[in-house]
Computed example of a mutant assay.
Amino acid sequence: MSETVLEVQGLITAFDTERGLIRAVDQVGFSVEKGRTLGIVGESGCGKSVTAMSIVRLLPQPAGRILGGRVMFQGRDLTKISPKELRKVRGGEIGVVFQEPMTALNPVHRIGRQLVEALRLHKKISQRKAWAEAIELLRLVRIPAPEMRMGDYPHQLSGGMRQRVVIAMALSCRPDLLIADEPTTALDVTVQAQILDLIKRLQQEMGMALILITHDLGVIAENCDDVVVMYAGRVVERAPVKELFANPLHAYTKGLLASIPRLETPPKTVLPTIPGMVATLSEFVPGCRFCQRMGRKGPTLRERPPFEQVKAGHWVEMCPVCYEGKEAGA
């Protein structure tokens, strides 16, 4: 049996606004096992990053709060532990690669100082040993001349180099779980491939679990073992990656997959798109939110569809309109 590193159950995250408390993540659940990669995919505004930040309780304060659910990591509920315990978990047992490296790195401190600070905070080692380990970390993520780069400021590095530094920082304490929140945003295709290969290689070497958040289904297909499809703060489908691509059941998942360019597609063909946009948080209906986007009326907007398992490992939100794989009498 594989070891479950993280299990999220019924997670509810909300933000305090002028209109009251508004849910951004609505009863989300999934698990990730040691050595495996879970991909979380969906359009911008679907709650992927908020879910990730809820796991490590890095929500904007004082507006963001967790209203319900459990985040079980190595037998502990991260929503219940003290801030002191949580600081040991963050960066030590759970590493986070943030979406934008320029905001993850302090622009007024040199790279070396930031790496050394992270190491000394969690490992309680001397300045000299931390400096040597930081150089080895930069070498591990394939940054050339790491001794020289230790003295650079973030703005002196390219986007790809900055992202490698953020990865090095996240892996500094050899975590059991790495959360990579769109780690290739704003990088060109070549650098994107290098960063993803790097994360995959380091994952295999360390045997850690990985949560990879992206809006790119191509990245999901190449790098993940299991997939969670999120829409409007909810999980609408969850399955092993091969099963999801071969047999998508929810209309939203089908729409995402149909929008991918294919080799056999004739040049200048207009790709299919999903009409409309994700509703704002304050506009979410209690029922099926994809029906809301499609402009449908009726009972599907009023009552939330159940989330059920239709075959081994394959779960889907059972909206009678959006779930098109349901057989008569099933």
Rank of each mutant, 00 (worst) to 15 (best):
V50Y: 05
R113H: 14
K124W: 03
G325N: 05
R76W: 02
F307L: 12
P261N: 13
V71W: 04
L38V: 15
M208A: 03
R293S: 03
R113F: 12
D26G: 02
Q27G: 11
Q204K: 15
L178K: 06
R289S: 01
C288V: 14
D77R: 10
E133Y: 00
T79E: 11
A251N: 09
R87I: 10
R120L: 13
L217P: 08
V270E: 15
H109A: 07
V32E: 04
T280I: 00
A193W: 08
E33N: 15
I22M: 14
I167V: 15
F307K: 07
V316K: 07
Q27P: 00
I213L: 00
R234Y: 05
I111G: 08
F73I: 09
P101W: 04
L244P: 01
E222Y: 08
R128N: 09
H314C: 10
R164L: 08
N247S: 13
A186V: 02
C224Y: 00
L157A: 07
R174C: 05
V89T: 06
V270K: 15
L244R: 02
E205G: 13
E182D: 14
Q114H: 14
L244V: 06
R262Q: 14
S54D: 05
V189P: 10
S158G: 07
P320T: 14
P101M: 03
T13P: 12
G20K: 10
A24G: 15
I125Y: 09
I179M: 10
T269E: 14
A14M: 02
